[in-house]
Design a protein around this nucleic acid. Structure first.
Lengths: 125, 125
DNA sequence: CTCCTTGTCAACCGAAAGGTTGAGTACGAG
DNA sequence: CTCGTACTCAACCTTTCGGTTGACAAGGAG
């Protein structure tokens, strides 16, 4: 299993069946059998999927007699959205700045983006 | 390889090395060797990672002599954020509604969340 | 032209993922 | 107590994944 929480969440949602389960749980809590019904796989397979979702923190399971109602923990989504937003914003910011550069020197050919921090090729004169 | 785009994006970002590469590319475009330098894996491995990111639409590669500058395509993030936001909102909405129910009947024991749409157990009087 | 740098492709390997079947546990109903 | 239901655990199988090594194509640099 992946060590870091972010990897666990992303890889948990990388499976369409698990995303489908999350979608169902957004409507309301459900038992394992209820969740397994729509799919043509065994209940054991769905139980494994739920374990993956649980390890990712996306889902919690309580006891209620012999039922195990599954509950969606939506707050874990923040982990992802924060990561995504960070780099999306950064990339947009960079794009905007590059755009400014292009606008300020419309005559030069602009060989490549100037954002390379490692001048391995020895910056000729 | 995963068929649907959402699975491709999620599983592309499920790997910490690939997330790291995305983080670097948010700063600016880079070549394969530059990207491979920080890691103690071969260039071929990084090339494979880039292929995964490219198949997910997160990255594009252009030709520039024998270099292949890698560029981050941040707009694909929207695919994820839209999916996430949808179910996060839905879950929060449900939670709010449940909260209202609890507030409106503070005396009842509330055996379990009333959001179950499949009354298999025959609703005992 | 020859060499070196950059990068990809192909084949292989071990580990993990997703599925199965079969057995076992926990609990309520009769 | 016995049975049925709901679920999990364990073992196994096949495919995918992340990594390796080795060979190769594409272009400057000398």
């Amino acid at each position: 299993m992946a060590a870091d929480p972010l990897s666990r969440v992303f890889s948990a949602l990388a499976d369409p069946t698990r995303r489908d389960i999350v979608a169902r749980l957004a409507v309301g809590d459900a038992t394992v059998n209820e969740l397994a019904a729509p799919y043509d796989v065994t209940v054991q397979a769905v139980s494994k999927h739920l374990k993956v979702l649980e390890d990712a923190g996306l889902v919690s399971r309580s006891r209620e007699a012999q039922r195990r109602p599954v509950h969606l923990e939506a707050n874990v989504f923040d982990l992802m959205t924060k990561w995504i937003e960070r780099y999306r914003r950064q990339a947009e910011e960079r794009y905007r700045r590059l755009d400014d550069v292009l606008r300020s020197m419309p005559d030069r050919a602009v060989p490549h983006p100037p954002a390379d921090p490692s001048p391995k090729e020895g910056t000729p004169s």
